[in-house]
Amino acid sequence: MRTIVGLWRWRHNPLRRGTDLVEAWLALVTLVLIVVAVPVLGMTTASLSRDALLGSVRRQHENRHSAVGTVLRRIDSPPLDPDPETSSARDAHSRVLARWTAPDHTDRFGVVLSDLKTPESGDHFRLWTDEHGRVVGRPLDGATATTHAVLAGLGAAAATAGLIEGARRMILWRIVQGRYARLDRAWDKAGPDWGRTGTGS
């Protein structure tokens, strides 16, 4: 609002420089872009991301099959990993030798991660396989896909707002540098004796 008032006030002011008007219009255009374009871009990004992620959810649910794994025996865990990013996921699961039935009704065996805290022989747990019976990750669900889409939209909106404001600041910096350059030329033209008695000023 101050920008619009500033534009109106500068219309016929005799002290107005051309760059003052450019600066006021720049602020107004930036405000309009941030208020209008940023939300539209954020919502569009979120919508497109959600559609793509929900399509991925559908494909994963078509290609991944739930199976019941039966623990044959527990496998000793490897030595502790000092990297907290990789060790935290592993610490929540235990490695077991398990048997499960593939979608083609054949029995499969292998070492897998189970969510059982203290697995014993004969315990059952849920796992996911592809159409060939290989163990794969759990398919993405709709709520997670929507959350990721919203975060993508917010990220796109924030990045766009940052780019717009960064462009405004860069243009404003160039305007101010131009003002300083013109002021330096004016001082050079006036000379070092400007304002002294008898110099014609």
Rank of each mutant, 00 (worst) to 15 (best):
D193F: 06
R90I: 01
G6M: 03
V57A: 10
R168H: 07
L151Y: 05
V68D: 03
G155D: 10
S121E: 15
I175C: 11
S47H: 14
S114Y: 00
L33E: 01
D115V: 00
V176M: 15
D81L: 03
Q60E: 15
R138N: 07
G153W: 06
V111S: 06
L48Y: 06
R169E: 12
G191V: 09
L113Q: 04
T106N: 09
A157H: 03
R58V: 14
D141A: 08
T45A: 15
H65C: 08
P103L: 08
A89S: 13
A149D: 05
A186I: 09
G191P: 03
G195I: 09
G191H: 05
S49M: 00
D141G: 06
A92K: 13
I34V: 15
L172M: 10
L26I: 03
S49V: 06
H61F: 03
A157I: 02
T197Q: 13
T86Y: 01
A145V: 02
T199C: 15
L97G: 02
L21C: 07
L183T: 08
P84Q: 11
D141S: 02
L154T: 09
P192R: 04
A158K: 06
S88D: 04
T3M: 00
P84I: 10
A161T: 00
T118P: 01
R95T: 10
I171H: 00
R169L: 14
L163A: 06
A190W: 04
R134S: 07
L15H: 12
L7I: 11
I175P: 01
T146N: 10
L183R: 12
R182Y: 02
R126K: 12
